[in-house]
């Protein structure tokens, strides 16, 4: 197996007035191609910071990030943007769809940014059907449920076949039923297409869908586990998933 994402002694210090906030304190991590990794930890431990650094949205104070063999930390903003465009699909807690565009329009926009011109209709349909959204293609975000919106956001992240999906609490705004649907789809995606996924979650049961869970605290990885039990059987309600 090859490494698709690697962080080496990653440190991130925010300066708030005269205060230094150490969000990450030397974090090293490796993610294998085809892995579904969950990151857990208390609020403020640096999970989002880590994800943003991996996606090149931030530059670390110290340390390195390698995405699919490309070092992005030392490079220019333009270069990092380029790596992000080619290799990474982001999924956010707040969906972040373009409200004026239809589901398909949101996908097309991602394709246009990727540089595929008017895009690939077949690929869009394939991704939308993978997320069971065929009938929602022409709907705008406000005409969709939260779960559907998040699935469109995942479809948008997938449409350009990124090496890596980075998801920051993708079920944080969903009820348990929709959370379960989205999580099963992420897992299916990971199993069927070997899509690498790194997902932040607060919910232990959501984390059970992953192959591996790392626990963070104060900017460090404190422990790591592999869910032994097979992921939650189909049809089981996820309890305690907050929105």
């Amino acid at each position: 197996m090859s490494t698709i994402l690697q962080t080496i002694d990653l440190r991130m210090t925010y300066h708030v007035g005269k205060m230094d906030v150490h969000a990450l304190r030397g974090l090293s991590l490796e993610v294998e191609r085809g892995e579904f990794l969950a990151i857990m930890g208390p609020s403020g431990c640096g999970k989002s910071t880590l994800l943003h650094l991996c996606g090149g949205l931030l530059t670390p104070t110290e340390g390195k990030v390698l995405v699919d063999g490309e070092e992005i930390t030392a490079s220019s903003d333009a270069r990092r943007t380029d790596v992000r465009r080619r290799k990474i699909g982001f999924v956010f807690q707040k969906f972040n769809l373009f409200p004026t565009l239809t589901a398909e329009g949101n996908l097309k926009l991602a394709e246009r940014i990727f540089g595929k011109g008017s895009g690939n209709g077949e690929r869009r349909r394939e991704v939308l059907s993978l997320l069971k959204l065929e009938s929602k293609m022409r709907h705008k975000p406000l005409e969709l449920s939260g779960g559907e919106q998040q699935r469109v956001a995942i479809a948008r992240a997938l449409v350009n076949e990124p090496a890596l999906i980075l998801a920051d609490e993708p079920t944080g705004n969903l009820d348990s039923e929709n959370s379960e649907i989205v999580l099963s789809m992420l897992r299916d995606l990971n199993k069927k297409t070997n899509q690498t996924i790194v997902m932040i979650t607060h919910n232990p049961e959501a984390a059970q869908y992953a192959d591996r869970i790392i626990h963070m605290r104060d900017g460090h990885v404190v422990s790591e586990e592999r869910p032994v039990a097979p992921p939650v059987p189909e049809g089981t309600e996820l309890e305690g998933v907050h929105s």
């Binding site: 949205l57 943007t81 380029d82 465009r85 972040n96 373009f98 991602a110 940014i113």
Partner: peptide, 11 residues
Amino acid sequence: IGVLKSLGASK
């Protein structure tokens, strides 16, 4: 605009 950037949109 943040979302565009997260999608890899250049300046």
